[in-house]
Amino acid sequence: MKTKRLVFVGVGGQGNLLASRLLGEAALAQGVPAVVSEIHGMAQRGGIVESAVLMGNVTSPIVSPAEADVLISFEPVETLRALGKCNKDTVIIMNTHPLPPFTVAVGQGTYPDLEEILSLIREKAGKVIALDGDAIAEEVGNPLALNMVMLGALIGSGTIPITADDMKKTISTSTKKAFLESNLAAFDKGFEEAKAN
């Protein structure tokens, strides 16, 4: 298969490390070689959390600037910050729900207007799939399921050779029973949203 380089960005607590790990496991279960890289340490302290999943005939665990095939971003400003990873063919899958950093609250910066962010990204990038992942997670009754929504959108985008069934199998074996139903519902909604996009 053609090598696929995926970058996940988000904010500590949003669950993007779990999303990238589950994707890696689903790939492996499907016989697709995969390597996942994570940077630990700051995840619980509100910092930026970045991870990468590389699939196919590739052994490097990280993605260089401009070389992401897919950017999965859990936060609008972090999407803008991560545009350096993208090129004109990169598919961007982004959550539109803003999570302003505390620096904004103490007056050390301003959070750009959401419409401005979206139009900047649409103007600069190739394909953009934007969805309010937090709203979808709320809708299925599990505000922590944003990462499942985003995984659903990723699979729904058709950019990688992992099927929804295989992804859901991995989710089923790796999440707590109490959250399984809402996690799968979140995944499905994200999937449909990306399909329709």
Binding site: V11, G12, M42, Q44, R45, G46, G47, I48, P65, A66, E67, V77, E78, L80, R81, L83, G84, C86, N87, K88, T90, P100, P101, F102, T103, V104, Q108, G109, T110, Y111, P112, E116, L120, K124, A125
Partner: peptide, 22 residues
């Protein structure tokens, strides 16, 4: 020839997101 990145001009200064005490 490396892959060309996106034109990043016109992106406003983004607010920093340093790790913080919980």
């Amino acid at each position: 020839k490396g892959t060309a990145g996106l034109d990043l001009s016109g992106i406003p200064d983004l607010p920093g997101r340093p790790p913080n005490l919980c």
